[in-house]
Amino acid sequence: MATLKTLVYLILYPGLLFIFFYSTFAEWYDRKLYARFQNRMGPTHTGRAGVLQPIADFIKLMSKEDIVPERADRGLFRALPAFGLAIVSVGMLLLPLWNYNLASSSPISFSGDIVVLLYLLSLPTFIFFLAGWSSTNLFSTVGATRVLTMLFGYEVPLFLTVLTPAILANSWRLAEIAAFYRQQPLLALLNLPAFIIALICVQAKLERTPFDIPHAETEIVGGTFTEYSGKKLALFRLMMDVELVVASGLLATVFLGGFPGGLLPGLINFIIKTLLVISLLSLLRATTSRIRVDQVIALSWRYLAPLAVLQLVVIILVKGLI
């Protein structure tokens, strides 16, 4: 029975199938919302209101010609998309969705899993860097250096703000943090500044406007993905969708009280809360213009990091009081 459950967990829910369908749905939601913010229609053609459009795009890209540049590091160039997709999909398994027990730890929910998840979310950045660097294209190289430069900006504030609620909840386990804030919703309000900073940092991590600097189309063409095509590009795009879902799931767990209630209510909770986070990210994307890479660093270290530290201090003081 346990084996069956594990298999279901890995393959059906929240494993590969669910990841695939939900992340494409999230992409559709993001695209549609972004389009409506811009007074456009967004996808309309495939499926009801275009909901199948990301899947159609995926299939189309999979069937396109796949070119590996002659001077690229072939092995690395080929392995990276699959590797990246695998990393973010593992991140999805760590979200406390179902099949965990608050009382005892298990391989998918243990003390310290928040750190593992943050680590898994950091790796895609290096994947992007390697992808850009190994394709030896000039635009990719510039994109790759931009990826790393940005990493030094947003990573520290993101870690600080995501760990702030953990400190208040006195736990390093995602399921316990979520449970803590479900019991004391008022304390979750204290984390509001941290939530806003974390949203901005997640936006930067996902490389969306205003932080779409590594693949700024009008400056360096495709950026890190200039040389990628066909199947590899499809996998990379799917990877970014999954990353969007995992990152918004992480924010929903830590700041919005997680996904209680077992299989079905947990699923509904998950959908509502992640879509809420994605809506906020879409709004941010629609209302800003792309900034320069030096401005990202300035923004992070001048505003985001000090504010995150301030928030941490406040939380530690509050923790002393209660």
């Binding site: 913010f37 811009q38 007074n39 456009r40 406007t209 205003p210 779409d212 700024a216 009008t218 629609a286 209302t287 800003t288 213009s289 792309r290």
Partner: peptide
């Protein structure tokens, strides 16, 4: 200008 700066919403509104 909005598009070049990555401000696509501005671009869409102005062109409308």
């Amino acid at each position: 200008a909005g598009h070049e700066a990555g401000f696509d919403s501005f671009f869409m509104y102005v062109w409308r």
